[in-house]
Computed example of a mutant assay.
Amino acid sequence: MIIRKTPRQIQQMKEAGRIVWHVHQELAKVIAPGITTRELDALAERLIRQAGGIPTFKGYHGYPGSICASVNEVVIHGIPGERALAEGDVIAIDLGVTYGGWVGDSAYTHPVGRVSPEAERLLEVTRNALEKAIARCYPGNRLGDVGHAVQSYVESQGFSVVRDFVGHGVGERMHEDPPVPNYGLPGTGVTLRPGMVLAIEPMVNAGTEEVRVLRDGWTVVTADGRYSAHFEHTVAITEDGPVILTKP
């Protein structure tokens, strides 16, 4: 069942999104060669709690971190640990905040120092894909229009879209209906209505779209070991079009 939010509830979700944005900005300042993913996780949790929020991810189905820290070939759900970032890495930071009972969820992929031209382009294409998806989030459009915007653009750039994992509705719970694929056919799928709030999150691989899950049950990696990128925003569908709740 798709739960549509009132304008007041969307405003409350925007407060959670404001904290998400702030934490992402602070993490971006310290991402550099030598820092560990555990240090990034500790900083994120401290900032979230200082702002009066709760790290949504921590303890979710037993997940141990406040963020997902996915480096290089890790697509999503990278568990923070002792791994130190190195020059040329890319790291996707995905984080959720619960504030006042409402969830904000977003992700950014960052270069670590100087990265290869291919990695730079992968990040740029994935970021652009998210923008193209959000631009389709008007009442009356369909989820197939949103997914097609991602898929058609990404594939035209020579990259691939992950199909095994998708975006989702978000609200009082982190995962709500409907699923939000990053692929699809125009004019198909659920019709977008005012009050729907979606976590739109292109996951784009430099090589094959195929992925596998490691033995820890969380970490998703590219099947061919090539880099992946992930960008995400929480987006409300309003009468006037999309409103990004995880960005000022």
Results as ranks from 00 to 15, higher is better:
R4L: 14
T6I: 09
R8H: 11
Q9D: 14
G17I: 06
V20C: 11
E26C: 07
L27Q: 03
P33M: 10
G34A: 15
I35S: 03
I35V: 15
T37N: 10
R38L: 14
E39G: 04
E39R: 04
D41R: 01
R46D: 12
I48Q: 00
R49H: 07
A51Q: 08
T56R: 07
H61F: 13
G62N: 10
Y63P: 02
I67Q: 02
C68P: 00
H77F: 14
G78W: 00
P80I: 00
R83T: 12
R83E: 14
R83L: 15
D89H: 08
I91E: 01
I93E: 01
L95F: 04
G96M: 09
Y99W: 14
G101V: 08
W102N: 06
S106N: 10
A107W: 01
H110L: 12
S116C: 11
S116N: 11
E120T: 13
R121W: 12
L122F: 10
N128A: 07
A135L: 07
R136W: 05
G144N: 08
V146F: 06
A149G: 12
Q151G: 01
G158D: 13
S160G: 08
G171F: 02
P178R: 06
P178V: 09
Y183P: 01
P186F: 01
T188V: 15
G189F: 04
T191S: 12
M196D: 03
I200G: 02
I200Q: 06
E201W: 00
G207F: 08
G207I: 11
V211K: 01
V213Q: 11
V213F: 05
G217K: 01
W218M: 03
V221S: 02
H233L: 01
A236H: 05
G241R: 05
P242I: 07
P242Y: 08
P242W: 09
P248S: 13
